[in-house]
Design a protein around this nucleic acid. Structure first.
Lengths: 335, 335
DNA sequence: CAGCCCGATGGAAACGTTTCCACCGCTGAC
DNA sequence: GTCAGCGGTGGAAACGTTTCCATCGGGCTG
């Protein structure tokens, strides 16, 4: 079944059929109806491969995801998919391993799939810095700032990670804590981790708390790594009274570790997370956390990418709002 | 840049270039090297649209996901993606709303994207029953049994839901519980929910516990719905001492609801979940649950689909093993 | 030495669209 | 009465592959 069969069947030419199928003008009502009748009767679909070949386009958006253990990402991905589905794009997800180079992966994807655009969700900022040149399609960085990474003509969407982390520390300090551990990401690799770390340092300086680098334990954003990192922190600093974890999953892992040592949350150690996943408020105690707006992140990413694909406007960097969710996992330090 | 340019540049014909690029035999070492050199130098990639047009295939596998709140699905999806990536398939995820008809959606996807195969992860069994005819590509049902739904020539992968649920009830009864509530899925719609319900009934009968249908509260598999369902259950049956939730996320929602009423888990009410998500053992108390093997589910699904695409063997239904994980959320009933 | 097979190679058709261009009749303006 | 403009239409080229078939030496076998 091809467009030519439809043409023959309906008594029109292929051009007219093509026009009808693509909703283009300059077709008589009569032709339109006759052709549509045949199309419906035969359950005909345009061959998208032929269409794309001729139009020289892919029809998809590829998303390269690194760090999928982070539950916030699941929420963002789902929202991305539904937004893109509305616009008719095919949505292709590629998870890459922690060790892999997502930029090289993106190159490969471009060559093979010819997407119209690429989104990077998460990812290693060293890899980013090594460069995007050669990726022939528009890109949007999600959770990394393209501008600060040195790509002024790439779009990106982030939370104000530094400020948000600062607020988390503020919160703990305002509750009387001074011995605060930090479960971070890998500062050298992760843009959000680096920014959040910077925010912590700024806050600590503001309160004249010695910003002891060794109280910052690097960990991937996952349950198991949060657990392991918390154990290390407790080994080194048994005197800490509070912990800021740079991801909720890390916080959840940490809470388990704290309890497995026979300590209580928040009575012995207060915990503040980051992300604001739905799960947090189902836990006991409810997780105190900095809530990012996953919906907004997804929506703006899509808009920026579509703008870039459409050639509208230059690169833009958007910062979505956050807010501190005051749960029960952080409490006032008993004198 | 086309294959013809490469041919001219390297001094060979397009056929030979095509052969080299596709790793086919009957090419001299010399030709292969010369051509590859040009390809690398020019960073040439085959145009996948042209390739697919000619070969009359899509190159992707579409996954239609319904019920994404279920964290087990995230794990399965990720595993699916990495398995398929190894085989060179493009992986396209489509989340559909709870209310949507995933079979119609699959039809649409087929027409537009021409995938080589489709996987259904989750989904409404009434929609399935209405039929798959017309989907021109191989399908695999994940978490629903094609055989039992009346599609003997479709492949599928499930856990033995009925037996697994029976084990969950067994466990509660062995701990002395008799007043057991069930937080289920929608039995009319969900294959796993129906099977798990059947398992519960079987177990109740075995112990001569009146299988009171009203002690089964239907809920979607999500945190919020688990919470709401538990509230209803507690309203109707304040005397229950144990709950079996047909999904871990439901169980987590339920635990929150129980605690919000001032009751304790497991001292006042024991909870058994279903799925065995990683998170479960990070909770306090550790979630007692029936653990499905997400990895195995993904692996077998891929194998079955690839077999079907390759035309090897008929339809098969695979049942993956499960096991009861004895956590801390269910305890012996105090006399 | 004839006949064959085989490895290496290339020319050209085909895949199913989109789109450029040309055509045709008709209306309205000059 | 000519001519531009326009709505409606169709023919055919082009998109970049794959693959069928043909060609051409050369090394066997008998």
């Amino acid at each position: 079944m091809t467009i030519r069969d439809i043409a023959r069947e309906s008594g029109y030419g292929v051009t007219t059929v093509s026009r009808v199928l693509n909703g283009q003008p300059n077709v008589s009502r009569e032709a339109r109806e006759k052709i549509m009748e045949v199309v419906r009767r035969t359950d005909f679909h345009l061959n998208s491969n032929a269409k794309r070949l001729k139009q020289q386009t892919g029809t998809g958006i590829a998303v390269v995801v690194k760090g999928s253990k982070n539950m916030l990402f699941s929420a963002i991905l789902e929202r991305l998919q539904s937004l893109l589905a509305e616009t008719g794009y095919v949505f292709m997800i590629n998870y890459v391993d922690e060790g892999a180079d997502e930029v090289m992966e993106a190159h490969r994807i471009c060559g093979e799939l010819r997407p119209k655009g690429i989104m990077f969700l998460g990812g290693n900022h060293e890899n980013f810095k090594r460069g995007f040149e050669g990726i022939g399609v528009p890109c949007v960085l999600i959770t990394s700032s393209a501008k600060e990474l040195g790509f002024p003509n790439l779009s990106s969407v982030t939370t104000d990670d530094a400020f948000a982390a600062e607020c988390a520390i503020d919160h703990l300090v305002s509750l009387g804590h001074r011995n605060i551990g930090v479960l971070g990401g890998y500062v050298e690799n992760s843009y959000p981790a680096a920014r959040r770390y910077a925010g912590c340092v700024r806050a600590f300086e503001r309160y004249s708390i010695p910003a002891d680098r060794s109280r910052v334990v690097a960990s991937k954003f996952s349950l198991t790594d949060g657990y392991a990192a918390m154990e290390r922190l407790l080994d080194k600093y048994p005197d800490i009274t509070a912990v800021f974890a740079m991801a909720d999953v890390t916080a959840i892992g940490a809470i388990r570790a704290i309890r497995d040592r026979g300590l209580r949350v928040p009575e012995d150690i207060s915990v503040v997370g980051f992300d604001g996943i739905e799960l947090g408020s189902y836990l006991t105690p409810k997780l105190t956390t900095v809530r990012q707006d996953g919906e907004a992140i997804a929506e703006r990413s899509v808009r920026l990418l579509l703008d870039a694909i459409g050639g509208e406007g230059g690169a833009a960097h958007e910062v979505v709002p956050f807010r501190l969710f005051d749960g029960e996992s952080a409490m006032r330090l008993e004198a």
